[in-house]
Design a protein around this nucleic acid. Structure first.
Length: 479
DNA sequence: TTTTGAGTTGTTCGA
DNA sequence: GTCGAACAACTCAAA
């Protein structure tokens, strides 16, 4: 019997710098690359619609890339352990390799699978493929997890030179003919209604798309990243988040590209971008050590936060639809709905607006982002929302409440971003575009806008809702 | 153990 | 228009 090894793909949909892949083919005659669709095992954080759309195309790319190297992706659906066992039985595989994931449900599942397969006599190994540092590998002097980003990243930054990516193989061992395997279309990942036009215009999922995006960013974007990334109407961010989430590029590869093409990753001009990679690491560090922070505030005092009850459904719906009457907020929410993505600066603005001006629980925002973002990532999403709400690690001070009008004037001074996503406001001059409700009536008439008809009146007063938020925080402060 | 310095991203107000 | 101070107090991390 030829030695047969299973490579279990999950969120590491690439051939380049894939440690599980390298280990699997190190000593094997037949390789069985497997993908098992098992969204119920990630519940309650099963991938949202935008993520499933991405996954479909990314899997398709992986299937082609494997085919080009003489291999073939074995697609399955159901319980992961049952499917792996079935494939083991069919193929006579004696080894299984995968790259580790860090969200609580998956960790739990994977450790059970590892145990069960080992009990059947298989060799089972997991690998570090999606992080620069294992969450347990970075610790304070007291051997405790970090809860503040800056010292965490200082510790990491001293060790960036450790990382050496491994290239994609140029050929792969053949595999057995899949038995009762599914096709990607069988997984039903694409939306039934064709709402994905905006996604298709915006993204190229898959490893090739990731490499192209990274190359383009390093060519031009990274130079001005420190400043440009704050301007939502520019292409100033890297756009790599969904590619990193699905493991279409490893952070190690990205780091190596930065070091080679830009220079010292810990120095200008690469440093601001590498810090963002650091935030991704930090988010996984926190999720690993505090797995309940997907649903519960890290700062326990916030369990008693007096979130809004009355009107909350109507307010949440207005926020989700981009009909709050606050242009920058609405522009962001509509960008999200259309393209599956929102500029990071605007994410902070809409999150501050939801949790502070509307006093709605951050979990409601996290849930919506989870469903709509193509880069929805449990670690980053939980960290970001808790940070915004003020209840997370190194959280924003409670008095730091974004004023969406002021943010618009600072970061979208010409109103280009608002005009793009809220076209009904496009004829307003920049002086009024971020607060149309204060524009003189003649100006509104000239721009063809009736407040409350063509564009909503603000659903809350910014000044008084800010004061209400400060008062709410006051009630939970000292306990 | 104690002390010390610091903590992603802001806003408002008054001079 | 620009600038500095106030907005609080606490916890974290390291010396």
């Amino acid at each position: 019997m030829p030695k047969t090894v299973i490579l279990w793909f999950r969120r590491d949909l690439r051939l380049d710098d894939n440690p599980a892949l390298r280990a699997a083919i190190a000593d094997c005659e037949r390789l069985v690359p497997v993908y098992i669709h098992a969204p119920h095992e990630e519940a309650p954080w099963s991938p949202g619609a935008a993520s499933r759309w991405w996954l479909h195309w990314s899997l398709l790319g992986l299937e082609r890339a494997l085919g080009d190297l003489g291999s073939r992706l074995w697609m399955a659906q159901g319980d992961s352990l049952a499917e792996l066992s079935r494939i083991v039985a069919i193929t006579g595989a004696t080894e299984v390799h995968w790259n580790r994931l860090y969200d609580p449900a998956t960790r739990n599942r994977d450790s059970g699978i590892k145990q069960a397969l080992r009990a059947e006599g298989l060799r089972v190994e997991s690998h570090r493929g999606s992080l620069l540092f294992e969450p347990w590998d970075i610790a304070t002097a007291n051997a405790e997890p970090y809860r503040v980003f800056t010292p965490f990243w200082r510790r990491c930054a001293a060790r960036l030179a450790e990382h050496e990516p491994v290239s994609a193989p140029t050929a792969l061992p053949p595999g057995p003919e899949p038995v009762e395997a599914l096709s990607i279309n069988d997984l039903g990942l694409l939306p039934r209604l064709a709402w994905d036009q905006g996604l298709r215009e915006t993204w190229t999922p898959g490893e090739a798309g990731a490499q192209a995006r990274a190359a383009a960013f390093l060519q031009t974007g990274i130079q001005g990243y420190g400043l440009e990334r704050d301007l939502p109407d520019r292409d100033g961010t890297s756009g790599l988040s969904p590619h990193l989430h699905f493991g279409e590029m490893s952070p190690r590869r990205l780091l190596a590209m930065v070091a080679e093409q830009i220079g010292d990753p810990a120095a200008e001009p690469a440093e601001p971008f590498m810090r963002e990679i650091g935030w991704r690491e930090f988010a996984h560090h926190l999720l690993y050590h505090y797995p309940r922070t997907t649903d519960e505030p890290l700062d326990r005092r916030f369990a008693d936060m007096p979130w809004r009850d009355a009107d909350s459904d109507r307010m949440l719906a207005a926020w989700q639809r981009g009909e709050t009457g606050i242009p920058l907020v609405d522009a962001g929410m509509r960008q999200l709905w259309h393209s599956g993505w929102m500029h990071n600066r605007v994410r902070m603005v809409v999150a501050s607006f939801l949790t502070k001006n509307l006093l709605l629980p951050w979990q409601a925002g996290a849930g919506w982002f989870w469903d709509t973002l193509v880069d929805a990532d449990l670690a980053s999403n939980s960290l970001g929302w808790q940070w915004s709400a003020g209840c997370g690690a190194g959280a924003a001070p409670y008095f730091r409440i974004f004023n969406p009008v002021r943010q618009g004037e600072r970061f979208d001074p010409e109103g280009a971003y608002v005009r793009r996503w809220c076209p009904e406001l496009s004829r307003l001059p920049k002086q009024s575009i971020h607060q149309p409700w204060t524009a003189p009536s003649a100006l509104l008439a000239h721009a063809g806008i009736r407040i409350g008809r063509d564009y909503p009146a603000p659903i809350v007063d910014l000044k008084s809702s800010r004061e209400a938020a400060l008062a709410a925080y006051e009630t939970i402060k000292r306990r």
